[in-house]
């Protein structure tokens, strides 16, 4: 167990030069300072430019922007678990700390991966409120405090893809859309105006990679940094999908 008084921090990072490159581990030793996190350590490595055994090394490529866990950029596998690197405090991690790129998304370089699949999924389910236009049409629909309190937490999803990384069903075999997208369906289907696209959204969750792939393993809920009640959203949307599918059957 690492202690707060240790004078150095030991980090191992899995690096890869290119999508087809050979992954390899590189080790670093950094001077310990109060309040360090994994991103500040990556910055420090860039400034020292050295591995643990004193070899010159290049700065590590990774994604990070806000550094306060709200932009969703920096999901990585840290000590074997997916989490946001900017809020991964060094003092709370066992050393040597291992940092790897997400495993279910194509690696671009080092710790940077391509997560554009989520943004494509959001298009597929029309995750928006269909506006007539942005000209002045007066106030929006009145909404109760209760509805706001139900929807706001889902709207905090930062598109980090941690839920998909941790999900046993999210893989090339199933094509499963993943928990985040389904939660957004719930969000927009519950909005007074967004509701008008409900049918199309539910349609998009049927068929290949649809909502039925979820096995309720709960892994997603455990890793979601925003503590979104993903399985609750999935079961509610799942019910709606079922009702619609049955209805469609009778209409045919």
């Amino acid at each position: 167990m690492a202690t707060a008084t240790a004078k150095t921090v030991q980090i191992k990072i899995k690096r890869q030069d290119a999508p087809a490159g050979n992954p390899h581990w590189e080790e670093y030793e950094l001077p310990w300072r109060a309040g360090m996190n994994v991103i500040s350590s990556l910055m420090e490595i860039a400034a020292t430019g050295q591995t643990k055994d004193g070899h010159e090394t290049s700065a590590i490529t990774y994604d990070a922007n806000c550094l306060e866990e709200v932009c969703g950029s920096c999901a990585m596998v840290i000590n074997g678990k997916v989490r946001m690197a900017c809020s991964a405090l060094i003092d709370k991690l066992d050393q040597p700390i291992t940092v790897e790129p997400l495993k279910k998304f194509p690696v671009v370089r080092d710790l940077r991966v391509d997560r554009s699949v989520l943004f494509e999924n959001l298009k597929r389910v029309k995750a928006w409120v269909p506006l007539d236009g942005t000209y002045d049409l007066g106030e929006g629909p009145r909404q109760s405090m209760t509805l706001q309190e139900e929807l706001y937490p889902i709207s905090r999803c930062i598109s980090c893809c941690s839920c998909m990384e941790a999900c046993p069903q999210f893989n090339d075999d199933t094509n499963f859309v993943g928990a985040a997208t389904i939660a957004q369906v719930k969000l927009f289907n519950s909005h007074p105006t967004g509701e008008s696209l409900k049918r199309e959204r539910l349609d998009a969750l049927m068929g290949d990679g649809g909502i039925h792939e979820c096995g309720y393993a709960q892994n997603c809920v455990e890793v979601c940094p925003k503590e979104i009640q993903l399985t609750k959203a999935i079961s509610e949307v799942s019910r709606d999908v079922m009702v619609q599918a049955v209805g469609d059957l009778f209409r045919k």
Binding site: W128, V129, L137, P141
Partner: peptide, 14 residues
């Protein structure tokens, strides 16, 4: 008002 129409979950009064 426009942002509200777009679905921003602004806090509400009773």
């Amino acid at each position: 008002d426009l942002l509200d129409r777009m679905g921003v979950p602004f806090n509400r009064t009773s």
